[in-house]
Design a binder for these strands. Structure first.
Lengths: 193, 193
DNA sequence: ACCTGAACACCGTTCAAGT
DNA sequence: ACCTGAACACCGTTCAAGT
């Protein structure tokens, strides 16, 4: 029988991706193998290759999709400092939900390099609010993203104190550093309200 | 014959570590396997396990040793801003020489958690110069290390522009952000000279 | 004490074959 | 078009055996 050792539906790329992401959430990057994934889907390992070029391509697709779905704070008209904080918190929360996925992204930053991603739109809007010039926008965004991802990774890897209070204080320190760094960034930083 | 398919010496932990680091430098984390390492050393794969508990333990030892050997800038009496910059540059240079090793460290931050490491000594000295209080020292150090490692990783992974000039400007932006972040950190930042 | 070969339980992926 | 089994070239590691 070649038709289906499976239940009903004939294996879609969406089902493959969501199951793979779940395996990563549960068991880390090491917890995802093509063979385990196939077993989880009740399918022959080789069937996966009909929907996906390689494990690497699958991981790239999982990460890009999940990153695109990260909930982002709306433009609520509050000062840029508050909005930057909200954005960093959103990233932090999503990374805590999918630590293995974001670890993989950190090691393969090209996945998140597409400047049409909403993440970049929101960050650029906030940086403009903070008074960053168009010329500096791209560079400043890259550096801040690297800072935040470095911090969030250290945090979810357990490099920083584990108790709720310690995390909050570390987070405050990180945001504080970035905000004052931006404010001292040359031209008058915008002071809304 | 069980005595030696090898040349002369009987396989030391130092030789194992330095060869393994070279393999990582040449072929990335994926370029290091216990079997390739053994082949490189003209030895049976299983012989390695007489000097090392596991691949994970070997990697931890390689990273800890290499991190401890990272050249650090001396206390040259210059302002803390210049010294912070010099420290970040030293880290950047070392990471460029051993990118796979530092990538592994970033994913296993406990390797670099030992506060007796010279890296932390130097960073704490600079932060004290910058006016950071003892109470904030540990936390601020953690956050800055996370920032710098995040930035350096993004850079060596090619997430930032590749040309020499672009890298320099990104580096300037990163240092600028950190310095002004620290300077705005509350109490009067020290202004030497 | 140090090294080895065979074996085990895994990987990702190719390829020819099935319906 | 979609799925499969067998096979290939790899992994890390255990274990009993050699000197």
């Amino acid at each position: 029988m070649a038709v289906s050792a499976r239940r009903g539906a004939p294996l879609s790329i969406e089902e493959i991706c969501s199951t793979a992401l779940r395996l990563m959430d549960e068991g880390g990057v090491a917890g995802l193998s093509m063979r385990k994934l196939a077993a989880e889907l009740n399918v022959n390992p080789m069937s996966l290759y009909h929907h996906v070029d390689s494990k690497e391509a699958l991981l790239a697709q999982i990460c890009a999709t999940a990153a695109e779905r990260m909930p982002l704070p709306p433009d609520d008209g509050t000062p840029w400092q508050a909005q930057l904080r909200a954005l960093a918190l959103a990233y932090h929360r999503h990374a805590r939900e999918h630590p293995a996925m974001w670890t993989y992204v950190q090691n393969h930053p090209e996945i998140v390099a597409d400047r049409r991603m909403k993440l970049w739109e929101v960050l650029y809007r906030i940086l403009r609010l903070a008074g960053v010039t168009e010329e500096e926008l791209h560079r400043t965004g890259d550096v801040l993203y690297a800072f935040v991802s470095g911090f969030v990774m250290a945090e979810i890897r357990g490099h920083l104190p584990a108790d709720r209070e310690g995390i909050d204080r570390d987070f405050d320190t990180a945001i504080h550093l970035m905000i004052h760094g931006l404010a001292g960034f040359g031209r008058q930083a915008a002071h809304p309200d």
